[in-house]
Design a protein around this nucleic acid. Sequence first.
RNA 1: GGCGCGUUCGUCUAGUGGUCUAGGACGCUGGCCUCUCACGCCGGUAACAGGGGUUCGACUCCCCUACGCGCUACCA
Length: 534
Amino acid sequence: MIIEMTPDLSRVRVRFAPSPTGFLHIGGVRTALFNWLFARHHGGQFILRVDDTDQARNVVSALQPILDGFKWLGIDWDEGPECDGPHAPYFQSKRSDLYQKAVDTLLANGSAYKDYSRPEEFAAERQAAEKEKRQFIYSRTWMAETPEAEAKFEAEGRDHVIRLKMPREGSCNFHDLIRGDMSFNWAEEQDHVVQRKDGSSLYHLTSVVDDGEMEISHVIRAIEHLANTPRQIFIAQSLGLELPQYAHLPFVAEPGSSNKLSKRKLDKYLKNHDFKRLYDHGARIAEKIGLDAAPETFNPVIVDFFREIGFLPESIVNYLLLLGWSLDDKTEEFNRAEMIQSFSLNRVNKAPASFDPQKLTAFQERYMWRLELEDRVALVLPFLLKAGLIAPEPDSNVLSFVKALVDAAGERLSFAGDILDYEEFFRADDAIEFEEKALRKRLVKADAQRELLKKLAQSLPELEDFSAASVESYIRTFVEAEGVGMGMIVHALRVALTGKAVGFGLFEILSLLGKESCLVRISRAIEIAEASKE
RNA sequence: GGCGCGUUCGUCUAGUGGUCUAGGACGCUGGCCUCUCACGCCGGUAACAGGGGUUCGACUCCCCUACGCGCUACCA
């Protein structure tokens, strides 16, 4: 059988069919993104179809996070949940009449049959074949193609399923847009079940029927479906449907391995250094905003994880774009318009691409750091609020303080949630906690520095202009007059003001806190240091 | 087991028979800058899975092996 396909890019319709599992997986997003880009590039439609055939449970609540994830990422759909469209409903659980009609057609034209074998009988045949190391081909002993045969089997108390009556000779040839010409022998295919004995339909059938009914032009999906394609082509042709073009994407692999990425192996991934680093970083933020960091819901293979800790959707999308696709040997950054413009299936790679948390983070930093100050402030505010560091409707004083803080933080903020590493700027002056080590090294065991601090605290009140620049020149003059280097005061002062050994530029810290706070913090730090000396 | 897909630096990749002593990015690393931490700047490290062909010539084409992944479900 030769299947001719005529590429028609004038009416591109592609789809992504998420299962309502509650989580939007990074690999799924990559597949959806490629579909979306393909549609947008060709001015076609991107359709979301909910694959809820096998779970009757709460679909709505399990679907919402997935839809929210797509919206957040800027992957919008032309037809599907919430917006519907000419091929509604877009929930497979509500399309069973279509599937039943398809089964009737298949039965009527002899492409499928009622099979009355008992599961153990069928299994016995298969096992026998395996034992003899030969290709299993069902004997079709319990196939019923006439009312008489049906009556006979039913009289024996048998149930039936619907099986495809697959060709047993020749080959299925088709062209894959990514892999080239494919050829599979029909004889390797089984008489797959398309409808269970309870009348519910199986994936291959529903998928093909929906693709046909929704006029899908290109099926762009993960490589694991490549071997499923012949049976789907058989179904489509038996139903008289026009075949879509196929494109099978490489899978997304685990960090540092060639195994397929899975959402159920967090424990294993946490053994990967880079992955663990990202997770720990995220967990630190989650803790500060009171978020449950349970691995099932909070995990760097799930899109929500990134949203919760303050990633930019742009960086995720840009990173994912490059996971299996490239434009050339140098271009790495693409905004929406550029990726839509540049995307083509021709440049999709064949080999699996492994998920690299470090490179994703690098993209995030690039995008984050080039944002305007106001935009970074806007990103950071929700985190401060969630952590209880600011009030729900901050006044202009608070806002300008946050702005100054974000400015001082500069490129120390990789994720918006990183702002919570600087909570000492929101604490009361007498509630600063000191890092044990820093306190000891810079204040307790540093008598000269402590004395210097005392001196500074005595003269500091005279300084009127408390801008960073002014503070800097004041302190530089101060140490010069004392005949010591900057190193004598910088570290002690930073620890006294923030409790930490590392942080922003010292003069920014002074300026941010303001003169009063600085003086209070210095004297408190000195007291604590001297007390712990005894 | 059978069938199919895949294999370039640690990772993402460029490369479609000579331009490859294999290019870029992330990472790692040496140095500079510097009040710490970052940032930034300059430099470095590192790959064609292995073996056979084909060819004047192979990362590029063919075959085999190895490894990885998938299909072989009344899962999707």
